Simulated assay, not measured.
Amino acid sequence: MLTSKGLTEMIFNREKITSPGEYPFNIPALRRLSSLKFHPKVTYLSGENGMGKSTLIEALAVACGFNPEGGSIHFNFSTHPSHSVLHQYIRLVRGASRPKNGYFLRSESFFNVATNIDQMEDPLLLNSYGGKSLHEQSHGEAFWALFMNRFSGNGLYILDEPEAALSPTRQMAMLTRMHELVQQQSQFIIATHSPIIMAYPDALIYELTETGIRKTSYTETENYRVSHQFINNYEQMLKILLE
Rank of each mutant, 00 (worst) to 15 (best):
F104H: 04
K100G: 13
V226A: 08
R225I: 15
A145R: 02
S133Q: 03
F38K: 06
E220F: 03
K16Y: 11
M148I: 10
F25S: 01
G47W: 08
P24E: 06
A203T: 12
N116D: 09
S109M: 03
Y206A: 05
A191P: 13
Y129V: 01
K239P: 00
R98Y: 04
Y206I: 10
V182D: 12
Q236P: 00
N49E: 09
I117Q: 04
E180Q: 12
L166P: 09
H139L: 14
M198G: 06
S46R: 03
N112P: 04
H135V: 07
H83A: 13
P123S: 10
G153P: 09
A164V: 08
L125I: 09
I189W: 06
Q184H: 13
H80M: 05
L204M: 11
P20M: 00
S186R: 14
S84M: 10
S4P: 05
T169A: 14
K215M: 14
V226W: 01
M174K: 00
E121I: 10
E210T: 13
T216Y: 09
N127A: 12
N26C: 03
R177S: 09
Q185G: 01
M148K: 15
F188P: 09
G21N: 06
L175G: 12
S72L: 00
G131R: 09
G50T: 10
A203Y: 09
F25D: 01
T176G: 10
G155I: 03
L146S: 03
S82C: 15
M174D: 01
H39K: 10
E180S: 11
F188W: 11
I189T: 08
H80C: 05
S72C: 06
F188N: 12
N149V: 07
I158N: 04
G21E: 04
F230W: 14
I196H: 02
N101P: 04
F77V: 01
L105Y: 14
G70N: 09
M51R: 06
H74I: 08
S97E: 15
S107G: 02
L242M: 11
S194I: 07
G6I: 12
L30R: 04
F143V: 00
V85K: 08
V85E: 12
Y206D: 03
S4L: 12
N127Q: 13
F77Y: 07
I196M: 05
A61V: 07
A96W: 07
E222Q: 14
V182K: 13
A96Y: 06
A142G: 10
E69A: 04
T216E: 05
P201T: 13
G70R: 01
P201H: 13
F66Y: 13
R170K: 13
N13F: 09
M10F: 02
K53M: 07
Q185N: 13
T211Q: 14
N223W: 00
A165D: 03
E222Y: 15
Q229G: 11
L7G: 11
N154E: 15
N49W: 09
P28D: 04
Y103E: 12
R32D: 15
L238G: 12
N232R: 04
N223S: 15
N67D: 06
Q183K: 13
A145W: 00
S35T: 02
Y218A: 05
S186V: 11
I11D: 03
F147V: 08
Y44V: 07
F75L: 07
N76M: 00
S133F: 01
T219F: 11
K41V: 00
K37W: 03
M172A: 11
H74C: 02
H135I: 10
L2Y: 12
L146Y: 03
N112D: 15
